[in-house]
Design a protein around this nucleic acid. Structure first.
Lengths: 345, 345
DNA sequence: CCGATTTTCCAAAGCGCTTTGAAGACTGCG
DNA sequence: CGCAGTCTTCAAAGCGCTTTGGAAAATCGG
């Protein structure tokens, strides 16, 4: 069933039907209702391929996911972000197109998306410091929003980020207030912008009190259970082990917990842990009472909002870049407590 | 830059250029090379919107993700499946379109995808017993592959599944061989087809030895850390607690571990745990040595293969439904051991 | 009641590609 | 050299929609 046939059955011209369907004012309200009703009855939906060609808009947003053996983006955080963004897209009639590409083809993937007109804009995931994608996308003129920030970029660009620095500074302060002095950082990979900012917040808080963060207590690796475990285990084996951990994610946190428990220590009493909680649907930090003390910020909500920014950029291409900084809240759970008495062999 | 302009610059007709680009035989090899070179040099790529309209193919595969407060599909398993499928799609020039819809609109979403011609086929996620989507998609004629199976469906359909029943039967046998008799099942929601099959494997193994699985040791809920913890905790509080757990996923497994450790029991000695491991990239079951004994089957590989089946279905629409059953392997880790001596208070 | 608006509808021209049907340019062979 | 047969190339007709520029119908003011 196409427009021509549908219009014929209604005894109207394709023009009028198209306008009725798309809400143009120059069609009688009675006619519009008749058209709408018939569309529903006959299950007529304009062919999206034709629509896209005719309007010149793709009505789709792209997400490029680099795939490789290392550092891949296919993680639970990404899944929740996608879910949030997807909600916004479908509410606005946009499709979400995912491109899974080998990570050395990433630039080519963006160029192709632009040249072929497959999407109207993209969201950039996992920005690094001075991320080359910002310049590339500006150059080829494909609207985009960065999830996170790309410190060091010269040109202005749109982004949405969590205030990672402040969140980690606050969490560190919280531990310091509890009397902890040997605080460990189990960070993500520090060429990632967010991880770098977290580290700054972590050191800042200590320096503000005249303390020097111990280098042997700062580690950084991929945010997996295994890496979290390894980092925590080796730090707990130090002559002067940490009494508290600041951990980059729920998943690394599970590894840290495993390491702590392997040494027969109790969390919240012998060792304190604060994690960053992305509020993932399948990895809740406790159903009602939080398990971990955490800096929390919903990545799903971030997805929703980033998508909104992008759509507004597409609708109004003349507009200035938009930026939005979300604050994380500090959730007090059962994984933190005052520093234990020093007489621990 | 469009075809017309590009052809003009080459001094050829659009017809010839199109044919050269698409590998048709009726164009001189020398001409083709000239065209290819120019396309690269001038960065010409055929507009995908026009191509789709002209060919009548969408060159895209849809994945509908129902979103709601409960039972959502946005989970780490889904993310890895998508990554696998995405690899196959991009290798074959297909796009992946994700539709995030409220879960009561799911049927409408499929109908729309078909009516608007947005995609050439879909992959069905999280099938339940007698899943209505199988009939719907067959009826509207949208090619599809089910990830999992929908027991009870009348019409034949294409699917790719893991042999969950055999995997759980084997795992149960393994525990029985270790002397365990109080074995608990921490299952996923049992209206999901895979969970139901796992339960069958679990009970079958016991019945085959003349044992009756204890109803109080069979639980089923969403596969989150929190639910896993709750189920295990309540079973450990029983007068006759289980000595072993069979757990539906890595994530529930973390909750089970937490429950076990909270009671001061040691995994692998006091309590054995076997999980099902989807081999997720961000949730590896140990980097080199497995942490958990597990039934393992890569969901990413499943994504790759399911996508292949779907593409072949689209290429050859006359073909019969295709099915593929993957076997899980049993990985022996450190979380299982012989049943402890009965004299445990 | 008539000309001027306003409302409602339509014919036709794209959007940028693929593909059919046909024509021009070469070949080989008698 | 001429003709059938094969290679190359092309003009033009879609694909199913939107949108421009009018035209017909309805409404209004005087």
């Amino acid at each position: 069933m196409n427009l021509k046939e549908f219009a014929r059955q209604l005894g109207l011209s394709p023009t009028t039907v198209s306008r009725a369907l798309n809400g143009y004012p120059e069609v009688n309200e009675a006619t519009r209702e008749r058209v709408m009703a018939a569309a529903k009855r006959l299950n007529y939906r304009p062919n999206s391929r034709a629509q896209r060609l005719a309007t010149g808009r793709a009505m789709a947003i792209g997400h490029v996911i680099p795939i490789a053996n290392k550092h891949e983006m296919v993680n639970p955080v990404f899944a929740d972000f996608i879910a949030g963004a997807g909600e916004t897209y479908s509410r606005n009639g946009y499709d979400m197109v995912l491109s899974v590409v080998p990570d050395n083809d990433e630039e080519a993937a963006y160029r192709e998306l632009k040249a072929r007109g497959t999407v109207d804009g993209v969201i950039v995931h996992g920005p690094r410091m001075d991320d080359p994608r910002v310049r590339l996308l500006t150059e080829i003129g494909l609207p985009f929003v960065v999830h996170g920030r790309a410190s060091g970029s010269q040109t202005p660009y749109s982004w949405l980020d969590v205030n990672n620095r402040r969140a980690f500074r606050r969490a560190t302060d919280f531990l310091l207030d509890l009397g902890h002095r040997r605080i460990a950082l189990v960070n993500g990979l520090e060429f990632m912008d967010f991880a770098m900012r977290r580290r700054i917040g972590f050191t800042e808080a200590q320096e503000a009190r005249g303390l020097m963060p111990a280098p042997e207590l700062m580690s950084s690796a991929e945010m997996t259970e295994g890496r979290g475990h390894a980092m925590a285990a080796s730090m707990l084996a130090l002559p002067e082990p940490p009494t508290a951990f600041l951990v980059a994610s729920m998943i690394s946190g599970m590894g840290v917990r495993r390491a702590v428990e392997e040494r027969g220590l109790r969390i919240g009493r012998d060792v304190s842990i604060i994690i960053h909680d992305d509020d993932l649907s399948y990895m809740k930090n406790g159903e009602d009472v939080p398990i971990y003390t955490a800096t929390r910020s919903s990545v799903r909500e971030a997805g929703r909002q980033a998508a909104e920014i992008l759509l507004s950029l597409i609708t109004d291409p003349s507009g200035e870049p938009q930026t939005r900084l979300l604050e994380a809240e500090l959730i007090i759970g059962q994984s933190t407590g005052p520093v234990p008495a020093p007489a621990r062999t």
